[in-house]
């Protein structure tokens, strides 16, 4: 039985497959317990979990809050608006405040790549990256992988098409690392202006024609296109984007007949995904992703609290 060796969960890049499997297996057992209405209130009893969000995110914060509470932790939410950061309190000032509060588990969301890694050097708590800039979003990729595994029975040899604004997506990066580690074939699909430079070097195949990109895919994973990307001139308009890179029923027909459709939320209906596809219960697993999110975060909190205890 592998034992997760790190103090923090900052990124999936470089995380060895046995530890990914360990996290997914534990998450799966939490998913079953959650469905059975059973709670495990003693796992994190006496531990303090702080949700430190420098960027608004209702769903990720709520998911971590629920995960922590189901395991019996004392959960505190701290929303630090960017304006108060601009008033002079630095990330490291925040770190010393948290140390003084004796935090055990620290969930961090930040608009800057590498911010959780910087915090992890200064805080005594185990740090969980809940999304940093355009770098990584490890728990999102874990919940995506768990959802896929439950639907497909395995991750091995699946073809996953990640579509849309890959350039700005931390979800895409974490998914690429995890899925490749678990032997999936990964394609990224989008206009050249939204595909990161040299992304092929990570081991993915790049498609600018969405029809070719999702052909025979087992999983079609859509990404959120943020409105400011259009203001930045990376794509000319929402309607053009939807026409060529939005997922609708006609394009989805090219994927495998049993292909599942995923989205990390929140969705821009009519921009990257058509409502008819998003709400199709036979194809869309978007609701299940949210459910698995809580289970995955329970597993991450559980495993990190144990690794902290082992190492202390």
């Amino acid at each position: 039985m592998p034992l997760y060796p790190h103090r923090h969960l900052l990124a999936l890049e470089g995380l060895e497959p046995p530890y990914i499997a360990e996290l997914l297996d534990l998450a799966e057992s939490y998913a079953l317990l959650n469905r059975g209405g059973k709670t495990q209130r003693d796992v994190l009893r006496g531990l303090t979990l702080i949700n430190l969000f420098f960027e608004d995110s209702t769903r990720t914060r709520t998911s971590f809050e629920l995960a922590g509470k189901r395991l019996g932790a004392d959960v505190i939410n701290m929303s630090v608006s960017t304006s108060s950061v601009n008033k002079g309190e630095t990330l490291l000032d925040t770190a010393s405040t948290l140390n003084a509060m004796k935090t055990d588990l620290l969930v961090v969301r930040h608009a800057q790549s590498g911010a959780p890694a910087l915090l992890s050097q200064k805080v005594e708590a185990a740090v969980i990256n809940a999304g940093d800039g355009t770098h990584e979003h490890p728990t999102q990729a874990l919940l995506d992988a768990l959802t896929i595994r439950r639907r497909k029975g395995t991750l091995e040899n699946l073809t996953v098409a990640i579509c849309g604004d890959v350039l700005h997506s931390r979800v895409a990066r974490s998914n690429i690392h995890l899925l490749l580690a678990m032997n999936c074939r990964v394609r990224v699909v989008g206009p050249p202006t939204l595909i990161p430079a040299e992304v092929e070097a990570l081991g993915v195949e790049v498609f600018h024609d969405m029809r070719a990109g999702i052909k025979d895919a087992d999983v079609v994973m859509m990404l959120r296109l943020q409105k400011e990307r259009m203001q930045g001139g990376l794509v000319p308009s929402a309607r053009e984007f939807f026409r060529f890179y939005g997922l609708d029923a006609a394009k989805l027909k090219l994927a495998k007949p049993d292909a599942i459709v995923m989205h990390p939320g929140p969705m821009n209906r009519g921009v990257e995904i058509d409502s008819a596809v998003a709400d199709d219960p036979t194809r869309s697993v978007i609701g299940e992703q949210v459910e698995m999110g809580v289970a995955v975060r329970m597993a991450v909190l559980d495993i990190l609290s144990k690794s902290t205890r082992r190492n202390s």
């Binding site: 790549s113 430079a197 990570l202």
Partner: peptide, 10 residues
Amino acid sequence: EGEMATRMGL
């Protein structure tokens, strides 16, 4: 720009 910046999301 390149693989390094892509990996780090910078």
